[in-house]
């Protein structure tokens, strides 16, 4: 499908242009999500896109689906309600690193634990952009932010490891540089039955970049290219060799009972007992 056709079919063109800064990775991710939805062949009428608060969470407003822009950190909680009420709907959650790893961290681990069939795409730009450049739980330790003028003290999360440990059954990491791979990773997540989690390493030249001497989007994408190691290549490297790098690709996949399917069995059991 051409860009024009994709835009026409999947976006609310009257809501464009978007609010994101020049060089921001959010548009690339939204584009990848749209292409992945198209590639996975989801039913547009039966797809709900849910977001929290932050730059990333404005994406659903531009997308021609049923869309729900919730409160800060709570996208997964709202999405859980949508999915449980109508399990036949495909529910996609678009969230940011602050939204899902800080204020929404509890919902993230519990949604993963339940293995509820949601597809979560995290726009990880290592910073709170909407509020102007404060550090998030994913900001690399020692980086600068408006609230870390001397460098961050906090250690940063590896969200993919967290979600895997919590019970997520599809975990992947992509970047805004490796867009073809990103589309495939999201598309695979959409096709997976269970809790699917795709972290997207993105760039915020405006806040993270300027604070950390990476003032151009191009430089930040170059950084991604140089530091990302595909899963297969990473398998051959020692931890020492991987130091300072990050692994991209499908990191984890397993089959496990999905929450709404198990709950449907509960319903059948409860109704059976009444006979």
């Amino acid at each position: 499908m051409s860009i024009e056709e994709l835009l026409e079919r999947y976006t609310r063109r009257d809501k464009l242009p978007h609010i994101w800064c020049p060089g921001c990775g959010n548009g690339i991710i939204m584009g990848a999500v749209i292409r992945a939805l198209d590639q996975a062949g989801v039913d547009q009428k039966k797809t709900v896109i849910v977001s929290g608060i932050g730059c990333s969470s404005r994406a659903p407003g531009y997308m021609k689906f049923d869309t729900l822009h919730t409160t800060h950190g709570r996208a997964l909680a709202y999405a859980t309600g949508v999915k449980l009420a109508r399990p036949e709907l495909k529910v996609v959650v678009l969230t940011g690193d602050g939204d899902c790893a800080a204020i929404g961290g509890n919902h993230l681990i519990h949604a993963a634990r339940r293995n509820i069939d949601l597809t979560v795409v995290v726009f990880n730009n290592d910073i709170y952009g909407m509020t102007g450049g404060q550090y998030s739980p994913l900001t690399p330790q020692g980086s600068y932010a408006t609230t870390a003028p001397y460098g961050t003290v906090d250690r940063n999360f590896d969200l993919c490891e967290l979600v895997k440990a919590a019970g997520g059954t599809y975990v992947a990491r992509g970047t805004t540089y490796h867009t073809r791979m990103l589309i495939d990773l999201i598309s695979a997540g959409l096709g997976h039955k269970g809790f699917s989690f795709i972290e997207v390493v993105s760039q915020c030249p405006m806040y993270y970049g300027r604070k950390n001497k990476l003032a151009s989007a191009v430089a930040m994408l170059e950084w991604q290219k140089e530091h990302a190691v595909p899963v297969k290549a990473a398998a051959k490297l020692t931890p020492e060799q991987l130091k300072g790098k990050f692994v991209i690709g499908e990191l984890h996949r397993e089959e496990a009972p999905e929450y709404t399917e198990v709950y449907a069995e509960v319903v059948a059991r409860a109704r059976g007992e009444e006979k």
């Binding site: 729900l68 909680a77 709202y78 309600g81 949508v82 919902h107």
Partner: peptide, 10 residues
């Protein structure tokens, strides 16, 4: 949050 999501789902 889940209550609101479910209500929006009808």
């Amino acid at each position: 949050g889940a209550v609101i999501g479910a209500s929006l789902a009808g």
